[in-house]
């Protein structure tokens, strides 16, 4: 059985790679179905049929007149050539691609900084630099909801920066405060530290690690290959959690990121913007899957290169 498992090491990474490739198409497809099911349509919002005779013409212009499949396929073929169309409502007439290109770095920076905080906490927990007694403090801070921390940060930025709240410096401050809110609130850091501590403490009890320590080797170098897949999986889940939290933080702090784009696009039924934002999120999720697959492949390669363990008769 163990030998079969070793031979099939590639299945999980392969599934992850497949999912990563599918996500950017599948997620917008699902979202198209969902937004189509919502009441009202953007053409009627701009040109209500009761007071405006051009509703059908507008619907045809925006490919809304032949059902969701036609709309999605038209969007997909344009998106494949890098054209995400124009915003219908939130920034009427502006191309969506620049909006997306502005949003992705902001969201990446926000989530990246928050993730760095989590990784630092995880590393501290794994190496015991962050003592176990700090967990309760982190948990207490983590009881504050993300939205509350974000609101406090938004008020502070608004009052201090006023009209300059969208200048480069203020945006950096907002991203930094947002990342802190995202990383600390809702037990994100506390959870990451506890999770990794638990994995490593469990590995520390294993015989092979004890032997390594007796040989004068480090704990991390021995435990890492075994712990890496579990930690990679945990970190991917936490990053996805950060991505969803980023929507709240971006909306409250008015950071021009993917979450904010998705939120305002959905409220305004700006389908092109919504699909582009979900595409952006799907790309980020896909890249996480790729990273996890890469860790799994690297661990598998490491294990294959290591000398086989032989059973020794007592």
């Amino acid at each position: 059985m163990a030998a079969d498992g070793a031979r099939q090491w590639w299945i999980r990474p392969a599934i992850r790679l497949g999912a990563a490739a599918l996500l950017p198409v599948a997620v917008p497809a699902v979202i198209t179905g969902l937004i189509w099911a919502l009441p009202g349509d953007p053409a009627s919002l701009i040109c209500p049929p009761e007071i405006c005779s051009g509703t059908e013409q507008l619907a045809a212009r925006w490919n809304l007149d032949q059902g969701p499949v036609h709309f999605f396929l038209s969007w997909l073929s344009d998106a494949a050539s890098g054209d995400f169309g124009k915003s219908w409502r939130i920034q009427q007439g502006s191309p969506v691609t620049p909006l997306l290109l502005t949003a992705i770095p902001h969201t990446a920076a926000l989530v990246g900084l928050a993730l760095s905080l989590l990784l630092a906490g995880a590393l501290g927990a794994a190496t015991r630099v962050l003592p176990a007694r700090a967990d309760s403090l982190l948990s207490a801070v983590g009881l504050i909801p993300t939205v509350v921390m974000s609101l406090a940060a938004a008020a502070a930025v608004s009052i201090n920066y006023g009209a300059s709240a969208f200048d480069a410096e203020a945006v950096r401050v907002k991203i930094l405060l947002g990342a802190l809110a995202l990383g600390l609130a809702d037990s994100a850091l506390a959870g990451a530290a506890r999770g990794v501590r638990s994995i490593f403490e469990s590995e520390r009890q294993r015989r092979y690690v004890q032997m390594g320590i007796l040989r004068g080797e480090g704990v991390l170098s021995n435990a890492w290959p075994n712990a890496a897949p579990a930690i990679a999986g945990q970190m991917r889940a936490r990053t996805l959690h950060l991505l969803s939290g980023a929507v709240v933080v971006e909306v409250v702090l008015q950071i021009e990121g993917l979450g904010d784009l998705l939120w305002s696009g959905t409220l305004a039924q700006d389908f092109g913007v919504v699909l582009a934002a979900t595409f952006g999120f799907a790309l980020l999720s896909g890249s996480l899957l790729l990273a996890q697959a890469a860790v799994e492949i690297a661990v598998a390669m490491h294990v294959r290169r290591s000398p086989p363990v032989r059973e020794v008769a007592a």
Binding site: K86, W88, Q91, Q92
Partner: peptide
């Protein structure tokens, strides 16, 4: 003059 013309934002 359609609503999604660039004129609407610039």
């Amino acid at each position: 003059v359609p609503p999604d013309h660039d004129f609407s934002s610039h």
